[in-house]
Amino acid sequence: MKLSEREDELMTAYQNGDDGALEGIYTLLKQSLYSFIFRYTRDEQLSIDIVQDTFVKLQRYKHNYNPRNGKLKSYLFQIAYRLMITKLNRRKKWRGLLPFLTPIQTEEFHHSDRMTIREAIAKLPELQRAVILLFYYHDMPQEEIAKILEIPTGTVKSRLHTAINRLKEELEGDENESRSL
């Protein structure tokens, strides 16, 4: 049985009143949701909060999910992405008002180090970052990414290509620099 079929089966069971099925959905999708949010924000606590909030929303609106409209994984990623953007925007506002609330960056990038893929992805503009993470790490087709991010498929395609080129430039540029040193 395919993983997506198992997820849908569990979701149907949950919608029909089997509360235990939710635990199964959580076990299946927690890791991919967390890794997406973490790679996007690089904030462990925020990523945990968002995964938990996503499942709270799923419980609250469990009957809104219809398998005909897409996979459960995409549905949860859409909820998580919206929650993440709302939280990040709220944070930006608060930090504008109270700059001392800015947390310490634990993984600051030092120019003396070679640029890793982490830094290269973190340097991407937010919209390109989301596209590349969903495409590469979560094997999502461009149509599904378009649904999650609520943008046209053409935009996904162009952002993906721009992001790939940027990543190549960042990584190659850094390698050339380290070679010349």
């Binding site: 967390y34 790679r39 945990i48 995964v51 590469y136 790939i164 990584l171």
Partner: peptide, 30 residues
């Protein structure tokens, strides 16, 4: 999807694969 834009770029794929995330253990609700 018509084609995989990563297909031709093995170097980038190798770099992308280096990015691992450790998943902490946390409950569904807090």
């Amino acid at each position: 999807m018509s084609h995989d834009p990563f297909k031709k770029d093995h170097h980038l794929c190798t770099k992308m694969d280096e990015y691992h995330v450790e998943i902490p253990d946390f409950p569904m609700k807090s």
